[in-house]
Design a binder for these strands. Structure first.
Lengths: 156, 156
DNA sequence: GTACATGCAAAAAATTTGCAGAGAT
DNA sequence: ATCTCTGCAAATTTTTTGCATGTAC
């Protein structure tokens, strides 16, 4: 049962990776296999350690490069806003964020209401208490949209 | 007008910082002043460069230490999930996240519905398009709640 | 006076890059 | 044959830490 889920996932990853023009090297294949079994949200280093068990000669740099390629290919996504330098929040008001997917900049957003319902059947969440819901809206900011509309796309 | 907002903010930061037992050194005061004027989400390095203009002799390590102290004091918050190592998302289903505020672990959450309304009057967001809303629920996971209930609180 | 804070420099952690050789298509 | 990918090692970037001295309370 669990096996077939991982296998279906692997097939998907494999196909999406191939259709993005990425070559199927042994390193990439093992990485995809590890990813297809991942239940959580692994870091590059955790992936490295997993992949290494099957391919002891792989280098950490290769894992980093592959993970980036897969992000570019849309196969993986960095969890939220992680990485790079930590940004700090000073605004004491109750608010949320809008993140531009092209330039990565963040703006504060005020919401008038939030409503959500957890699907408990599908969510094996060991939450004892939930005390806050932060929303991040993702999209294109006006500047990047204009740039994308006319000239070549300018990212990051 | 803008001045008084910053000043009110500074007073708040100053008071919260003091009531957390933090001493008011020149370095801390300038940092709080910079923070009270911050309109965006600065990194430690950006804060360092700002503070330096008023206190050229301050060291980057002091800024880092102070920012951490202020986070512990509840004056600042790290933006979302940033920092440390980047975690990657493999799950292709449409889902959201639950983050334990004690241990920092992340679980996938499935929502049946999401509803929100942007308060456009208060939000100067230059969003050309919004194509996704990611929700992060914050709280205590069962494990950390149990640990907090009995023994001493175990964090991070 | 004492405990906390600071500066400096070195260390650690996370990530990126240059380069020469190997391999996929 | 070509263009991508890899391993290795060195470089960068971000953050943390040890230690002697300074200073807010």
């Amino acid at each position: 049962m669990k096996r077939s889920v991982a296998e279906r996932r692997f097939a998907t990853l494999h196909e999406r990776s191939a259709s993005s023009g990425l070559r199927m090297t042994p390193q990439r294949e093992v990485l995809l296999r590890v990813l297809s079994r991942a239940a959580d949200h692994p870091t590059a280093d955790q992936l490295y350690r997993q992949v290494r068990r099957h391919l002891p000669s792989i280098s950490l740099a290769t894992v980093y490069r592959n993970v980036q390629d897969l992000v570019r290919a849309g196969v993986l996504a960095p969890l939220e806003h992680a990485g790079a330098a930590v940004q700090y929040e000073v605004n004491p008001d109750d608010h949320h964020h809008f993140v531009c997917r092209a330039c990565g900049r963040v703006w504060d957003v005020y919401l008038r209401s939030i409503d959500y319902a957890v699907d408990r059947r599908k969510s094996p969440v060991p939450a004892a208490t939930i005390d806050r819901a932060d929303i991040q809206l993702h999209g294109l900011c006006a500047g990047c949209a204009a740039r994308a509309g006319s000239g070549s796309a300018g990212a990051r």
